[in-house]
Design a protein around this nucleic acid. Structure first.
Length: 936
RNA sequence: GCGGGUGUGAUGAAAUUGGUAGACAUGCCAGACUUAGGAUCUGGUGCUUCACGGCAUGGGGGUUCGAGUCCCUCCACCCGCACCA
C-alpha cells in the first residue's frame, strides 16, 4: 500500500505548510467563480486550439492512463495562454456506443441514463485534476442538440457526389442537371462502372430508376455488405463480440450475412487523403500507417476470357510484366463469378468450401498463412497472349473487397502463390531464369524475362509499360490505380446511435427536410433486435411507419459519426441555427495541436479528415484538414499481479515455489500488493472464496507473479487517479504523470516514484515559506549564479514545454530548486519568474504562492519570463580528453582558446603522456566546446 | 500474415541529435538532527577487479578518430488490421 500522510483536512491555507488539499479546493472554486477558463471567439490575441481526443464515458470511470494526454494538453494550453494566446481548450463525450447498449440489455437500464451517470463520474474525476477546460463548451454526441447537426451533415453528404473533374464534392442537383443535358458520358459511375446512359434515356427513366442511379454516385449510399450474423441471438455482432467464430455471449455460431447498409464513399477521397498528409505535421509513423491503409498502387486491370463460357475473369495486378508466368487464377469465394463458371463436376466441392469460408473471419483468412486452403472451380481462363489454359481456383486469401476480387497467380514471383501451387501440385512456370531457384518465390523487379513470348529478354520494369500498352491496344485491359482502402460502412443494426434522417417512400430513400431535424431517438422498452437482424428501432412500428408506404430507416450511425466533426462544434457549441457559425470556424480554424492514442490512426483520423474535406468542398468551412499537428500519447499499461493456488485447494504458494506444485494462476488486485509482496490479510478479506486461504511463503513473505497487460478492471490492475490526488494532490499527480517519461511512449504504470515529485513541490514551497519563520521571500538582488540557474531553467522549460518534452522539463525544475535550496535563495526576482514557469504544471500551488507573495492578479494571466542568454554564457569549458575514443581525463580551456595551444597542452599533460608511452600521437581531434580525442 | 512501435542500471528514464553513457527521480546502503520518523538534510550506489584496469545501451556484424545514436542482420515484447471507442 501507499505510505499515508496524516490527514490534513484544515481548510485554512494561511498556515505555512504545503496543505495541498485546501489549496487545490480553494483555487478550483475561485477559478470556477471567476470564469477563469471562459474563452471568447474573438479578440486581439493570436488563437491557439488545443484538443484532446474526447473519451467514451465507460462505466469503469477514468484510470491513470486516460489523463496522460489530457495533462499534456492542459500544460500546453496554459503555457500558450501565458505566452499571450487566446486558447481554445475543451472537453466532451463521445457518448454513443455499444457498451451502453449491452449494459442496457443486461440490466434494463436505458443507455441515456447510464451514459448520463457515467459522464457525471468522468466530470468529477476530471475536475479533480484541475484542468483548464472551458466547460461551458462541453459537448455530448448523444444530445439531440448535437446529433441534429450530425444528421444535418449526413444529409449534406447524402446530397453530394464527388466530381472527379473538379476533384471535390458537389451538390447532387448539379449532377442531375448534367444528366439531363448530357447523360453520364465521361462521368464514370463510382458505384457501378457499367452504368451508361444518354440524356434522352435519363429523361425517360422513372423516378425510382433515376434515384437508383443517383445512389451509385452519392457520397453516402446504400449497398449490400456482409455482417456477422448470429442466428441464435437473432442479431448482428460487432467484430469485438465474435471470438473464434462464435459469439462472445453464449458461444453461438456466427456466419456472414449480406444486408443492405449505408456507406460513405471515402474511396473518392483516397488521393486527397493521401496528398493532404503532406500539409500536416503528424509523426512519420502515423503518416505511414495512413498511407498503408489507403494503399495506393499502380498496375493494370486485365480481362481473361473463360474457356467455353461468355464470362471473363477480371484481375487487378501490380505486376502485368509477369503475365507469362501465370499458372492459375484465384477468385474470392464470395465473387459472383464463382457460381457462373463452376463446372457441375466441381460444384459439390465448391459448395463445401464456401460453407467453410462463411465461418471464417476476414482476419483469420489473412492471418492463417500456413494453412493453405482452396478449391478448383473446374473452369479455365485463357491467357490472352499465348492462349494457355489457366485453372481458376477460389481461395479464402483473396478478398472480394480488394481490387477486382480476383488475382492472377505467378508462383515463381509471389511466395503465397508459390505455396499455393506447391500445396495443390500446380506446375510452376519460371519466367525469370536463374533468379528463381525452385525453392521459394523471388519477387524481384530486376530480372530479365524468359519464357515470356514477346517480352523475352526484356527487363521487368520497362516490360510493365509494354504489356499495359498492348492490353489497351487490344481492348482487354488498362492501366489502373487501385486503393486498398474500402468504402466505410456507416450502418449499425443497433439502438444507441444517431438515427438516420432518411425515409423510404415505396422503398426509395429520401433525405428528411432539414427543418424536421433532429430526428430524435425514440424511447424503447427493450433492446432486442428486429426481424432478420434489423436494429431495435425496427420493433417500434409507429415510429417506423410514418404514413402508408412511408417508412423510416431503422439502422443507426456508427460510433465515428459524432466524432468525425466534434472539433467544429466546440467552436460554437450552443448554436441552434447551424453546426457552427462560419465566423467561429474561420476564427479558430484548424486544431493546432491534437493529442490522442495511435489506436485511432486509421479510423477516426481518416473519417474526420474526410468529413472536413466534404464540408470544405461544399463551402461550409474554410479549411480542408482538421488537425494541423498531431501527437500520439503512449498507452499506460497495467502491471498485473498474480497468486498461485494449488489446484483444487485453498492453499496459495509463493511465486518462487510454484513450480513444485500444480497451480492455477489468478489475478490479484494490485492494491493488495506492495511491490511484489502480497498483503495476505487484505487478500483473505477480498473475496469470500479466499477467506480460508492459507499460504506457502518464501522468506516469510508471499511473492506475487507479475505481467504487463492492458489496464483493465477485469485484470484488477487499474489505478484510480482520484486516490492519488487524494493522497498527494492534483499538482503532484499532474507532474508525476509527466515525469514518467515521454508522452509518446507506452509504459506500465508504477505509483512508486510519485513520492519524489511530491518532495520536490514541498521543497519548492520551503523556498517561499517555512513552518517557523513563515514568509521567507526577500527583495535582495540576485547573484550571477542565481541568475544563471534561473535563465538556464527559463530556456529549458520554454523549449521543453513547447515541444511536449514534459519529463525533462520536470527534471529541470528539480535541478533548479535543488540548486536554489543549496544557495538558500529566497529572492523574489528569482522565485517569481520560476513560479510562472511552473504554473502550467502545478497551477494550484503556483497561484497560492503567487498571491502569498503579494500579487493580486491571477498567475494564470501572468507574462511568461524571457530568456536572456547573457546570464548563462560560459567562458571556459571542461573538455573530456579521450585516448582512442575512451575518456581518460578532463581539462579546462577557455572557449576562445587557440586549437594549437590546446593540443600542445593536452599532449604535454601527464595522463596523455602516460598513454603515449613516448610515441607521437597519430592524430589529435579537437571539437570546440565538445571534446578532445587523441589517437595513438 | 500485413502494418506501426519499443528494447539503456534493481526501477521510471536522460544523453546538446555522431562527441564524457546513466542527468533527474524511485529503491537500496551508511550517516546527521530527533522522544519518534512516515519530516528534513549529507554521502554512496551499472557490472567486475585489492588495485591499474577491463566490460557495459536486446544479440551478432559493419562504417568512423569516436556509435545508445548511422548501415546490415537476427531476436523479444507491445499496439492496430476496417462493426470496441
Amino acid at each position: 500500500m501507499y505510505c499515508l500522510y496524516p490527514a490534513n483536512y484544515s481548510s485554512s491555507t494561511t498556515d505555512m505548510e504545503y496543505n495541498f488539499r485546501a489549496i487545490e479546493k480553494k483555487w478550483q472554486e475561485q477559478w470556477d467563480q471567476s470564469h477563469a477558463y471562459r474563452v471568447s471567439n474573438n479578440g486581439p490575441k493570436p488563437k491557439c486550439y488545443v484538443l484532446d481526443m474526447f473519451p467514451y464515458p465507460s462505466g469503469a470511470g477514468l484510470h491513470v492512463g486516460h489523463p496522460l494526454g489530457y495533462i499534456a494538453t492542459d500544460i500546453y494550453a496554459r503555457y500558450k495562454r501565458l505566452k499571450g494566446y487566446n486558447v481554445l481548450h475543451t472537453m466532451g463525450y463521445d457518448a454513443f456506443g455499444l457498451p451502453a447498449e449491452q449494459y442496457a440489455m443486461e440490466t434494463g437500464q436505458h443507455p441515456a441514463v447510464t451514459t448520463a451517470a457515467n459522464m457525471k463520474t468522468f466530470r468529477k474525476q476530471l475536475d479533480n485534476i484541475g484542468f483548464c477546460y472551458d466547460w461551458e463548451r462541453q459537448i455530448n454526441t448523444s444530445d439531440p442538440g448535437y446529433y441534429k447537426w450530425t444528421q444535418w451533415i449526413f444529409l449534406q453528404i447524402f446530397e453530394s457526389w464527388y466530381n472527379r473533374t473538379t476533384q471535390k464534392a458537389e451538390p447532387i442537383s448539379g449532377l442531375v442537371n448534367i444528366f439531363e443535358k448530357d447523360g453520364n458520358a465521361g462521368l464514370i459511375c463510382p458505384g457501378d462502372r457499367t452504368i451508361q446512359f444518354t440524356a434522352a434515356q435519363w429523361q425517360g427513366y422513372s423516378e425510382k430508376e433515376q434515384r437508383d442511379i443517383l445512389m451509385q454516385y452519392r457520397l453516402a449510399f446504400l449497398a449490400y455488405a456482409e455482417v456477422n450474423w448470429c442466428a441464435a441471438l437473432g442479431t448482428v455482432l460487432a467484430n469485438d463480440e465474435v471470438i473464434n467464430g462464435v459469439s462472445e455471449r453464449g458461444g453461438h455460431p456466427v456466419v456472414k450475412k449480406k444486408m443492405r447498409q449505408w456507406f460513405l464513399r471515402i474511396t473518392e477521397y483516397a488521393n486527397r487523403l493521401l496528398e493532404g498528409l503532406e500539409t500536416v505535421s503528424f509523426s512519420d509513423a502515423m503518416k505511414e500507417m495512413q498511407r498503408n491503409w489507403i494503399g495506393k498502387s499502380q498496375g493494370a486491370e486485365i480481362k481473361f476470357a473463360v474457356k467455353n463460357s461468355t464470362s471473363h475473369v477480371d484481375v487487378y495486378t501490380t505486376r502485368p510484366d509477369t503475365i507469362f508466368g501465370v499458372d492459375f487464377m484465384v477468385v474470392a469465394p464470395e465473387h459472383d463469378l464463382v457460381q457462373k463458371i463452376t463446372t457441375p463436376a466441381q460444384q459439390a466441392d465448391i459448395d463445401k468450401y464456401l460453407d467453410y469460408v462463411k465461418s471464417r473471419s476476414e482476419r483469420e483468412r489473412m492471418a492463417d498463412v500456413k494453412q493453405i486452403t482452396g478449391c478448383f472451380t473446374g473452369a479455365y481462363a485463357i491467357n490472352p497472349f499465348d492462349g494457355r489454359e489457366i485453372p481458376v481456383w477460389i481461395a479464402e486469401y483473396v478478398l472480394a473487397g480488394y481490387g477486382t476480387g480476383a488475382i492472377m497467380a505467378v508462383p515463381c514471383g509471389d511466395q503465397r502463390d508459390f505455396g499455393f501451387a506447391k500445396h495443390f501440385n500446380i506446375p510452376i512456370t519460371n519466367i525469370i531464369g536463374d533468379a528463381f531457384n525452385g525453392q521459394e518465390a523471388n519477387p524481384t523487379k530486376d530480372a530479365k524475362l524468359q519464357n515470356s513470348g514477346f517480352l523475352d529478354g526484356m527487363d521487368m520494369r520497362p516490360a510493365t509499360d509494354v504489356v499495359i500498352n498492348k492490353l489497351e491496344a487490344l481492348g482487354i485491359g488498362k492501366r489502373q490505380i487501385n486503393y486498398k482502402m474500402r468504402d466505410a460502412g456507416f450502418s449499425r443494426q443497433r439502438y444507441w446511435g444517431e438515427p438516420f434522417p432518411i425515409i423510404y417512400k415505396d422503398g426509395i430513400p429520401y433525405g428528411m427536410d432539414e427543418k424536421d431535424l433532429p430526428l430524435e431517438l425514440p424511447h424503447v422498452e427493450n433492446y432486442k433486435p428486429g426481424e432478420e437482424g434489423e436494429g431495435p428501432l425496427a420493433n417500434i412500428t409507429d415510429w417506423v411507419n410514418v404514413a402508408p408506404g412511408v417508412k423510416r430507416e431503422t439502422n443507426t450511425m456508427p460510433g465515428y459519426a459524432g466524432s468525425s466533426w466534434y472539433f467544429l462544434r466546440y467552436m460554437d457549441p450552443h448554436n441552434s441555427h447551424t453546426f457552427a457559425d462560419r465566423k467561429a470556424t474561420d476564427y479558430w480554424n484548424q486544431v493546432d495541436v491534437y493529442v490522442g492514442g495511435t489506436e485511432h490512426a486509421v479510423g477516426h483520423l481518416l473519417y474526420s479528415r474526410m468529413w472536413t474535406k466534404i464540408l470544405f468542398d461544399l463551402g461550409h468551412i474554410g479549411f480542408d484538414e482538421p488537425f494541423k499537428s498531431l501527437i500520439n500519447q503512449g498507452m499506460i499499461q497495467g502491471s498485473s499481479r498474480f497468486v498461485y493456488r494449488i489446484h483444487g485447494t485453498h492453499q496459495f504458494v509463493s511465486a518462487g515455489l510454484k513450480d513444485n506444485y500444480q497451480t492455477d494462476k489468478l489475478h490479484v488486485d494490485v492494491n493488495f500488493v506492495d511491490g511484489v509482496t502480497l498483503n495476505t490479510a487484505a487478500f483473505k478479506k477480498w473475496k469470500p472464496d479466499y477467506y480460508e486461504a492459507t499460504f506457502i511463503l518464501e522468506d516469510g513473505q508471499y511473492i506475487c507473479g507479475t505481467e504487463v497487460e492492458k489496464m483493465s478492471k477485469s485484470k484488477y490492475n487499474t489505478v484510480n487517479p482520484n486516490e492519488l490526488v487524494e493522497k498527494y494532490g492534483a499538482d503532484t499527480f499532474r507532474m508525476y504523470e509527466m515525469f514518467l517519461g515521454p508522452v509518446e511512449q507506452s509504459k506500465p504504470w508504477d505509483t512508486k516514484g510519485i513520492e519524489g515529485v511530491h518532495r520536490f513541490l514541498k521543497k519548492l514551497w520551503r523556498l517561499f515559506a517555512d513552518e517557523q519563520k513563515s514568509l521567507l521571500v526577500n527583495e535582495q538582488a540576485a547573484t550571477p549564479e542565481e541568475m544563471k540557474i534561473l535563465h538556464k531553467t527559463i530556456h529549458k522549460i520554454d523549449q521543453d514545454t513547447s515541444s511536449f518534452s514534459y519529463n525533462t522539463a520536470v527534471s529541470q525544475f528539480m535541478i533548479c530548486v535543488n540548486e536554489l535550496a543549496t544557495m538558500r535563495c529566497h529572492k523574489r526576482s528569482i522565485l517569481e519568474p520560476l513560479l510562472i514557469l511552473l504554473t502550467p504544471y502545478a497551477p494550484h500551488l503556483c497561484e497560492e504562492l503567487w498571491q502569498y507573495i503579494g500579487n493580486n492578479e491571477s498567475i494564470l494571466n501572468a507574462l511568461y519570463p524571457v530568456y536572456n542568454e547573457q546570464y548563462t554564457k560560459e567562458s571556459t569549458f571542461n573538455y573530456p580528453v579521450a585516448i582512442n575514443g575512451k575518456t581518460r581525463a578532463e581539462m579546462g580551456f577557455a572557449l576562445d582558446a587557440d586549437t594549437a595551444a590546446i593540443e600542445k597542452e593536452v599532449l604535454a599533460s601527464e595522463i596523455v603522456q602516460k598513454w603515449l608511452e613516448g610515441n607521437p600521437p597519430k592524430k589529435v581531434i579537437i571539437v570546440k566546446g565538445r571534446m578532445i580525442n587523441v589517437v595513438i
